[in-house]
Amino acid sequence: MIVTDIKPVQEVLDALGGYRKVFVVGCGSCATASRTGGEEECTAWLQELERSGKEPAGFFVPEETCHVFLLKSMIRQSEAAASADAFLVLACGAGIQAVSAATDKPVVAGLNSMFLGTTYRAGEFLKYCSLCGSCVLSSTAGICPVTRCPKGLLNGPCGGMVNGMCEVDNTVACVWVDIYERLKSRDQQKSMTRINKPKSAGNARHRKVEPQRIARKAHP
């Protein structure tokens, strides 16, 4: 899921500027699980808008806000949404842009998108994947160095590993030591002498042929 963080109230109010009537859009999937854009957070924002002298037009929490067609139909059916000057969206960047694509009205971001998270337990998320577009997990014992090493090293550990910990934060284990331990438990540690080739910048940067659109047909 996409883990999000709540933006400072003042930053959001500044972005709302002169828009008076504001409709709040949450997200029933990731932002609800993130505790940043569920019903509770939407309601809190309505009160904040009121306090700030704005007119809260109402809110809804779509099942998944990153769905343009769904958003178009929900906005079309909502009189409150239709009457608003602007939308305040409590969703990830994909969700905010879906709202933006579904309406001509101005859209303000209420959240910062942090990372693709693995849920450890409810409310606790781990940054395990960078959506790099060329997965190496099969050769790294199911542990991603691209994401979990601060240098994203494909051939680690680096010289900064001290007593199994990372040079960037000595309270965090070096992910390459984790990979080594896991491989060793299977007597496969020798595979670490193989050189992993440099990756294509892939999804991480502005690649010329970025997969900006993937269309798949449903199974018959």
Partner: peptide, 23 residues
């Protein structure tokens, strides 16, 4: 290349050394 002889655990660093020699 660089080498950290006093590192611990040593074995992953030795595997990295071997890789640098291959490289």
């Amino acid at each position: 290349a660089a080498l950290t002889p006093q590192t611990s655990p040593l074995e992953p660093a030795l595997l990295a050394l071997e890789r640098k020699i291959h490289a």
